[in-house]
Design a binder for these strands. Structure first.
Lengths: 343, 343
DNA sequence: CTGAAAGCGCTAACAA
DNA sequence: TTGTTAGCGCTTTCAG
C-alpha cells in the first residue's frame, strides 16, 4: 500500500474517520479505549497525517516564508536559524527565499509564497519592491519587516536601534581619542539612522563632520576594501573606520593590512552585526552586536500574534545593539594622522 | 472577498473551472480568446492558484526537505543556498531542518517532512539515526545522501572524494618538507576515507605514521583549539596540522598563534571545505575545497530524477575536491620540530 | 462519546 | 475546444 490515509486507519481500528481525526488532534472526548486503539493502529500502519490535506480544510499551512538577500551570508544564516528554532517551537516551518537584491527574484518568490498559502511572511531589509509587499497585504497575509521600515505601510516591524548603534560605535572611537572617524555605509535603509547616530556622536564629542569620511557601498568584502582604500588615500586619512556591517569591516581590514598599516595601532576598525566572521578575522573585530536570536524570537512572535489574531494593533519592536569590544580597536595614533607617502 | 478561488475566476470569465485549470497549467487546447480572457480575470482578481489544493490532487508538493546539522554554519549555509537555487530552477522549494546532531530533532523533523508530504529529502552527513531513514524509504519518499553513505541502504548519494582529499592535502604538506603531519579528524563518516588518504600519502612519501598525531574532535572552534594544543604539547610536536574542516582548522590556528608560534613559518595549517571562513582568517587558510555548488546541483538532479522516476538505478556521484593554496602553509621549519620549552 | 456527510480548491478523466 | 463530475485526505458541524 502507498501511504496510508485516515480511512485506512479508521477501517483497521473499526471507527469512523472523524474519530481518528479527533484523536490525532486531541479533540477531547474519546474513551481511552478507542483512543488507544486508534493510536496503536496509526503506529502499526506508520501513518503520517497529511498536512496538505489538513491545510486545505483548516486554511492554515503552518508555514512561514522568509525573504532575505542571501542565506549563505553568515548574518542571514544565523538569523534564519533563530527563526527556524522559534518557528519550530510554535509549530511552524520556514521556507527560505534568497533574492540577491534582485527584483525579478523578489517577484517570483512572493508569488511562490502566496501560492503556497504561507500563513505569514518575514521580510528583511534588502527588499526593494514595495508594491510587492502591498500585494501581500492585499491578500491579507501577515507580514513582519525585520531591520526594515516602510513609512507608507503600517506593518509589524522588528529592528535594532540603528541610531543608537551608530552613536555608540562612534562614541567609543571618540573616547579612544580618534578625531577623524570614517564610515562605510551600506546602501540600505538602516544606514540613515546609523549615520544620524554617527553625526550626533561626532557633535557631542566636538569632532568635525567631514563628508569626505563618508562612503557608501554594497555589502561585499571587495567593496569594503575599495572604499577603505579611498579613505586611506585621502589628504587627511581617518584613524578609525566604522563599517556598517562585518563584511565591509573585514574588507576594510584587508585594505589597511595591505598597505602595511597595523590594526589597531595605526587604524581602528569597528563593524556591525557581530556575525561569526567577527570572531574569525585577525585581529578579531570590535563590532556592534545585533541581538539576532532576540530578533528571530520577536519576529516570529509578532508574526504569529498577527496570524492568530491575538494582537490587533501593529507593533514596532526596537531592540538594543551592543558594543562588543575585541582587538581591532585601540587608542588613536595621532602621528598616523598624516597621509602615508607610499601607497 | 478573501483570497479568490478558481471558481471566482471561472465565474467572472464565464467559463468552467476546468478551463481555468487548463490555462493555468497550460494544458494545450484552448482558444486564444478564452485563454486571454481567463488570464485577464486572474490578473484582475489577483488570483494565486493554491498549491496546497493542487498538491492534494496531484500528490506532489514540489517541496524538498533538507536535513543538516546547522544552517547557521557557513558550510551548510552555502550548500543550502546552492540547493535553493537549483531547486528553484526545477520548481521546488526547500524546507530546512537543523538537527544539531540531536536524535530527538532528527526524529521530529523527519516526521514533520513526512507529514508535509515533501517529494524528497536530502540528508547530509551528521545525521545519526539510520532507522529514521528506513522509515522514510518505507514511505517511498526518495532520499539522497550528501557526504554520507550508509552501507546497509541502497541510496542515491553525492559526495566528494574524501580519500583523495585526504591524500592531496597530506601530499602537499609532505612536498613542503613536513615530516610530522598531524590531523584533527571530525567525528563523522567522511573522516575514515580521509584518514586512509592521509595514511597512504604518508606512506608514499616515506613518512612514518604516528598515532599520537591523530586526534578526533567535534566541529567547533573551541574543540579545534583544544586538539591543536594537545598536539603542540607532544614530545615531538608536528610542523603541520591538517584539520578535517575549516572550523577546526581555524580553532587550531588560534592555538598556534596563542603560543606565539607563527603560521606558516613554524606551523602549517590546512583545512577542508573552503567555506567563506577560509578567506577571512589570518593568515588565509589553505584548504581542500568541496565543490558545494556542484554538490547542490547533483543532489537536486539526483533527487528529482528519482522523484520523477526518470532514472531507475540509484546513482553514487563522486565529486573531486581541490586544493586551494593560501597563506597558512609553507616549507617545513625543521628547527621547530622540537618541543617548545615555554607553553 | 461516535458517526455521517459536506466541503476545502484543485486536477483529471470522460462527455459533449 | 469546453464543461461535468468524481475524487484527493482531512476537518467540522450536526445528529444520534
Amino acid at each position: 500500500m502507498q501511504q496510508p490515509t485516515i480511512y485506512d486507519v479508521a477501517k483497521k481500528a473499526g471507527v469512523s474517520i472523524a474519530t481518528v481525526s479527533g484523536v490525532i488532534n486531541n479533540n477531547g472526548k474519546y474513551s481511552n479505549k478507542t483512543k488507544e486503539k486508534v493510536l496503536d493502529v496509526m503506529e502499526e500502519l506508520k501513518y503520517y497525517p497529511s498536512s496538505v490535506a489538513s491545510s486545505l480544510t483548516a486554511k492554515r499551512t503552518q508555514t512561514i516564508g522568509l525573504i532575505i538577500p542571501d542565506i549563505s551570508s553568515p548574518f542571514y544564516a544565523e538569523f534564519a536559524r533563530s527563526l527556524e528554532d522559534w518557528g519550530d517551537e510554535k509549530g511552524y516551518s520556514i521556507i527560505i527565499c534568497s533574492t540577491d537584491y534582485n527584483e525579478k527574484k523578489e517577484k517570483k518568490y512572493v508569488s511562490l509564497l502566496l501560492r503556497r498559502r504561507v500563513d505569514g511572511i518575514i521580510i528583511s531589509s534588502g527588499f526593494n519592491n514595495v508594491d510587492l509587499i502591498k500585494d501581500i497585504i492585499q491578500q491579507e497575509i501577515p507580514v513582519v519587516l525585520v531591520a526594515y521600515n516602510i513609512d507608507s505601510l503600517q506593518l509589524n516591524t522588528v529592528s535594532v536601534d540603528d541610531y543608537r548603534g551608530g552613536y555608540q560605535a562612534t562614541a567609543y572611537l571618540a573616547e579612544l581619542g580618534h578625531k577623524r572617524i570614517a564610515i562605510i555605509t551600506e546602501t540600505v535603509q538602516s544606514s540613515a539612522e546609523r549615520i544620524r547616530g554617527y553625526q550626533n556622536a561626532l557633535n557631542d564629542y566636538h569632532l568635525i563632520y567631514d563628508e569626505n569620511l563618508l562612503t557608501e557601498s554594497r555589502a561585499t568584502f571587495e567593496e569594503g576594501e575599495i572604499q577603505a582604500e579611498k579613505l586611506l588615500n585621502l589628504e587627511e586619512p581617518p584613524t578609525a573606520i566604522f563599517a556598517f556591517n562585518d563584511i565591509l569591516a573585514i574588507g576594510a581590514m584587508r585594505a589597511v593590512l595591505k598597505r602595511g598599516l597595523k590594526i589597531p595601532e595605526d587604524i581602528s576598525i569597528v563593524g556591525f552585526d557581530n556575525s561569526v566572521l567577527a570572531t574569525i578575522c585577525n585581529p578579531t573585530l570590535t563590532t556592534m552586536a545585533q541581538p539576532l536570536n532576540d530578533m528571530g524570537k520577536e519576529a516570529i512572535g509578532s508574526l504569529i500574534s498577527e496570524i492568530e489574531g491575538t494582537v490587533k494593533r501593529k507593533q514596532r519592536i526596537l531592540l538594543l545593539p551592543e558594543l562588543v569590544k575585541r582587538h581591532s580597536t585601540g587608542p588613536a595614533n595621532l602621528k598616523s594622522n598624516k597621509r602615508e607617502v607610499k601607497n
